[in-house]
Nucleic acid binder design. Structure first.
Length: 273
DNA sequence: CGGTGGACCTGCTGGC
DNA sequence: TGCCAGCAGGTCCACC
């Protein structure tokens, strides 16, 4: 589910609702996620407060008053809510963290690909396990020059390359699909054959698309919800994602799809070379 | 090391 | 109507 824009909206929602709140209880209902939730129960969270919530790639980090952080990943179907105890537990809500204002932080994840773990934070304020992530796509470190140089090292399809978190973090199937269409580059092109002008187009398309998607509250295809329960409105601005068989918004030809790296990749055979 | 393909998990959709 | 194959915003691991 969440790529970077969805994670950013979740973080903004959580920052508002969690910052300053003290944890009064932790209840795990079903521990089996990508990693076990069991350690959370004995992690000594009760009595700690959230001092901030931040994002790195697709991860959210609830910063705790003892210097540790609650690391969250939302997998494909993760949804977090902060709401009162009057609302009954949903089927796939796996952990409740009770707060001192009477609300409950709830982690729901139908497909169980998400994770929630407690880790010490380094000087920069992130858990060490995120060190291998590539640069933030919206940071100044993510430039056309950087992408071009990285691309030289990869012979695989450019779409798979863009979705590699160690190259740039947070670009998933939806946004990689959109960006390559905007840049006019076929998803199958070997990354190492990208030209400098194409790298420039791709980098600016990534920045522009992610910023617009953040502003729209992310993209909800089916599952994704923001912390306040709202759906992401960027679906309405999607150019080609999920539209194979429809006509290309640029040339009117028919959009096709193929599998790359196990993921469906929609593209326009006429506009994307 | 880079690239590929399958595994993980649940629910929904579309075709027969 | 019912069943089954295939698919879904991601990541990890084993294998060439």
């Amino acid at each position: 589910m969440p790529e970077l824009p969805e994670a950013e909206n979740i973080v903004r929602g959580l920052r508002e609702k969690l910052t300053g709140r003290r944890i009064v209880d932790v209840v795990v209902y079903s521990p089996r996620l990508r990693t076990s939730l069991e350690p959370l129960v004995s992690a000594g969270l009760v009595g700690l407060s959230f001092t901030d919530v931040r994002r790195r790639g697709r991860y959210a980090i609830g910063v705790l008053s003892d210097g540790r952080g609650l690391l969250m990943h939302f997998g494909m179907s993760g949804v977090v809510r902060v709401e009162g105890s009057d609302i009954p537990k949903r089927k796939h809500e796996h952990v409740f963290i009770y707060l001192d204002d009477g609300n409950i932080f709830r982690f729901e994840d139908t497909r169980r690909f998400g994770m929630l773990e407690c880790h010490p934070l380094n000087r920069q304020g992130y858990p060490a396990c995120l060190d291998s992530l590539g640069p933030e796509p919206l940071s100044d470190a993510f430039t056309a020059q950087y992408l071009f140089q990285q691309a030289q090292k990869h012979r695989g399809p450019v779409k798979v390359f863009l979705m590699d978190n160690s190259v740039v973090t947070g670009v998933g199937n939806i946004y990689a699909t959109e960006v390559l269409f905007m840049a006019g580059v076929a998803p199958t092109r070997p990354a190492c054959e990208l030209t400098r002008p194409e790298s420039r187009k791709i980098v600016s398309a990534i920045k522009e698309t992610l910023l617009r998607a953040i502003d729209a509250g992310g993209t909800t295809i089916s599952d994704f919800l923001n912390v306040d329960g709202s759906r992401g409105q960027f679906v309405q601005q999607l150019l080609i994602y999920g539209k194979e068989g429809a006509s290309c918004p640029r040339c009117g030809g028919t959009l096709s799809a193929l599998k790359l790296g196990g993921r469906t990749s929609c593209y326009c055979p006429k506009c994307q070379k």
